[in-house]
Design a protein around this nucleic acid. Structure first.
Length: 428
RNA sequence: GGAGAGGUGGCUGAGCGGUUGAAAGCGCCUGACUCGAAAUCAGGUAAGUGGGCAAUCCCUGCUUCGGGGGUUCGAAUCCCCCCCUCUCCGCCA
């Protein structure tokens, strides 16, 4: 959540920010008006409460002396009724204000390029060279089908479209990738491994910004206020929901594997084949909590950590800074995408998005820190990045490491995890 | 799923209708003592949100004792609903 005070103190900045993300700005003035109204009512209510408290004490005092207090009691009761009326109005304004504020995305950082579409993203660097094939490379769905390691037909039988069944050595590759990534992040990048539930309460999704605005992307459990997570950023960030952290414990870095579920509503007809766009996918996520002044540095650390996985696997990729209009993360103030080279697309495909959410999620989820005795509490900055999306990484390995005979060579880094050199139709 | 017990400040734990934002102990911070430390002594030590002020100093109002609602002039304390934890039983991978 953005700081509502901004709507009053610096409405132009907020309007500009919303505009840059392609949104309407009228709500800024609306918020300012409501907030002013709220403030006035709070003052009125507080003053009446002060009087009531005072008079109630008087009643107690009179009674303890055995004197008559009935007149004062009647007066105070009336006051209570007025307070109740004001507080009711106040509650209504607060919920109005909240329902607006919760749908406002984060404000882009100063150095995020202004732009309307992905065409205006800045390509920061490319790492590695796309392989030149001496034969026509196949798509990973074809490779998987031929080797009988990726079974789309059986998956459809079980769960419908956009699901997959991994078989044999491809299933093993998935396990290896999870271990490889998490081991790297814990041993080399300073993250602590976390395994958390994939089924969470609705208020948890509110904290990271998936709800209320993106309910249509998430699977809800019928009859309960629970959702299947769309990313494990939700669980990792909300681990500290409502907490006041010690400054000396920061930065806190978490990594973890989880299944993620997305409806992919509105993506009908796009990327229908293979592992690129599915309803259930596996992801290793990274999340960082830090002091505000450290978040730029920590964002770079996320990018480097995600990049290290791609480099370790020998996959060529591109790093891009998202422009204001293409920043997909509702909670993000600045985002970089890492895109892996996908021969079948003849293009780079996103495998990781690393974002600095500044204090946006922290404000929603009430995650704060305290510098020391007597110092006030401040909101932490939260950051998240995939490290990486497993399915898309598998697709990239299959395509980039395919041999002319259709087998897939295993990247050197995974040999120790797998114990075989090629993914083929065999089981061992 | 059934039965019982319980949820109070960083922690342990009192309070069970009025001056208690909350005893006591522990922890932590500051000061005194000390060459320094320990021990001892004195003081301080929750969060949120308003107002005053040039002020991140300070003064001050309101709210918060798992969450929500109710009773009352007044609720941590009484009543109702919900959530969570623990113990026992049942079920189960």
């Amino acid at each position: 959540m953005i700081d509502i005070k901004l709507a009053v103190s610096d409405p132009d900045r907020l309007k500009k920010a919303l505009e840059s993300r392609g949104l309407q700005t009228a709500i800024v003035d609306e918020m300012a008006t409501l907030d002013q109204k709220r403030k006035k009512l709070v003052q009125e209510s507080d003053e009446l409460k002060r009087l009531r408290n005072e008079q109630s004490k008087q009643v107690g005092l009179l009674k303890s002396k055995g004197e008559d207090a009935s007149e004062l009691m009647a007066k105070t009761k009336q006051m209570g009724e007025r307070i109740a009326a004001i507080d009711q109005e106040l509650d209504q304004i607060k919920s109005e204000l909240d329902s607006i504020a919760l749908t406002v995305p984060n404000i882009p950082e100063e150095d995020v390029p202004y732009g309307k579409s992905d065409a205006e993203n800045i390509h920061v660097k490319t790492v590695g060279q796309p392989r030149v094939f001496e034969f026509e490379p196949k798509g990973h769905w074809d490779l998987g089908d031929t080797l009988d390691v990726l079974d789309n037909t059986r998956a459809a039988k079980l769960s419908g479209a956009r699901f997959n069944v991994f078989k044999g050595k491809l299933a093993a590759l998935q396990r290896a990738l999870i271990s490889y990534m998490i081991d790297m992040h814990t041993k080399e990048h300073g993250f602590k491994e976390i395994f958390a539930p994939v089924l969470v309460l609705d208020k948890t999704c509110l904290g990271t910004g998936q709800l209320p605005k993106f309910a249509q992307d998430m699977y809800k459990i019928e009859g309960e206020d629970m959702y299947l997570i769309s990313t494990n950023e939700i669980t990792l960030v909300n681990m500290h929901q409502g907490e006041i952290l010690k400054a000396s414990d920061l930065p806190i870095r978490y990594t973890g594997f989880a299944l993620c579920f997305r409806k992919e509503a509105g993506a009908a007809g796009r990327d229908t084949r293979g592992l690129i766009r599915v309803h259930q996918f596996e992801k290793v996520e990274m999340v960082t909590f830090c002091k505000p002044e450290e978040s730029s540095k920590e964002l770079q650390h996320l990018i480097d950590s995600a990049g290290a996985v791609l480099e370790g696997l020998g996959l060529p990729y591109r790093l891009s800074l998202m422009c204001t209009g293409d920043m997909s993360g509702f909670s993000a103030a600045k985002s970089y995408d890492l895109e892996v080279w996908m021969p079948s697309y003849n293009a780079y495909v996103e495998v990781s998005s690393c974002s600095n959410c500044t204090d946006f999620q922290a404000r929603r989820a009430q995650i704060r820190f305290k510098e020391g005795q007597g110092e006030g509490t401040k909101f932490v900055h939260t950051l998240n990045g995939s490290g990486l999306a497993i399915g898309r990484t598998m697709a990239a390995i299959m395509e980039n490491y395919q041999e002319k005979d259709g087998r897939i060579r295993v990247p050197d880094a995974l040999r120790n995890y797998l114990g075989f050199e090629f993914i083929d139709g065999s089981n061992k």
